[in-house]
């Protein structure tokens, strides 16, 4: 592949052929959350079958699924005028521009740098549509907001042996010097991948894809067994 930096001659013609001016997005956005009653009755989280409450006593590892959060993927060019401001206005958090960092607030919202043009936004589940809409209203030009709440879940990992379990699982350096609070990265984890973030001195969050949740959950339980496990329901 080349690294074309100039427009190629065919591209212009095609772009010109676009019929209408689309300065604002026409993305099809739907509120994907059912009513609270329906949600309470019908939702099934990716780890509900595996992370049943348990306490081995004096457990070195504490696990909890943070289910049904709102997960949004944001893509866009932060060099575009108004992009960073728009995100901050819509979300209430500054757009992280430093690689591998995340910003979070007391309200359970966070935004994590994944790539120069991609961020992961986590919000309480019932806020997903509000935030998605707000982002569409605040942003223009090249950007994308996609609701991926059904495709991901979050595992909270804490306990005295949390670092040891991570070291068994990921080639990412999780030493406190290398992985301070506020750092987050996609990571190879066992034979799958996930997003690993340190949200406090004592807690890591693992954002896992739904279809891999069972495998990763089983892996964590297996790697944690020798330390004793507490699973919070």
């Amino acid at each position: 592949m080349s690294d074309a930096t100039t427009l190629d001659p065919q591209a212009g013609a095609a772009v010109d052929a676009q019929p209408q001016d689309m300065t604002s997005s026409q993305t099809s956005v739907i509120d994907q959350r059912p009513t609270p009653e329906v949600h309470a009755q019908c939702a099934r989280s990716p780890l509900a079958h595996l992370f049943t409450a348990r306490d081995d006593g004096d457990a070195g590892i504490v696990l909890q699924e943070k289910a049904f959060l709102g997960h949004l993927t944001l893509r866009g060019d932060p060099a575009q005028p108004g992009f960073a401001e728009g995100v901050e206005a819509a979300l209430g958090l500054a757009l992280p521009l430093t690689p591998a960092t995340l910003h979070q607030n007391e309200g359970g919202r966070s935004i994590q740098w994944l790539s120069p043009d991609e961020w992961l936004i986590l919000v309480p589940g019932e806020e997903a549509f509000t935030v998605e809409k707000a982002l569409h209203e605040a942003l223009a030009g090249r950007y994308q907001v996609v609701n991926v709440s059904g495709g991901q879940t979050v595992i909270s990992l804490s306990g005295d042996q949390a670092r040891q379990v991570l070291m068994k699982s990921t080639p990412t350096d999780v030493h406190p010097r290398a992985f301070p609070v506020g750092r987050g990265v996609p990571a190879v984890f066992a034979k799958a991948t996930l997003v690993l973030r340190r949200v406090s001195e004592s807690e890591f969050e693992l954002v896992v894809r739904r279809s891999f949740a069972d495998y990763l959950g089983r892996w964590l339980l297996d790697a944690s067994e020798e330390f004793g496990v507490c699973i919070k329901g």
Binding site: D8, T73, R142, V146, N147, V148, S211
Partner: peptide, 16 residues
């Protein structure tokens, strides 16, 4: 690599 000028963004929603 070839068409960075195109305004297009892609995200996987397979699991979603």
């Amino acid at each position: 690599t070839e068409w960075p000028e195109l305004d297009v963004q892609m995200t996987s929603v397979t699991d979603h």
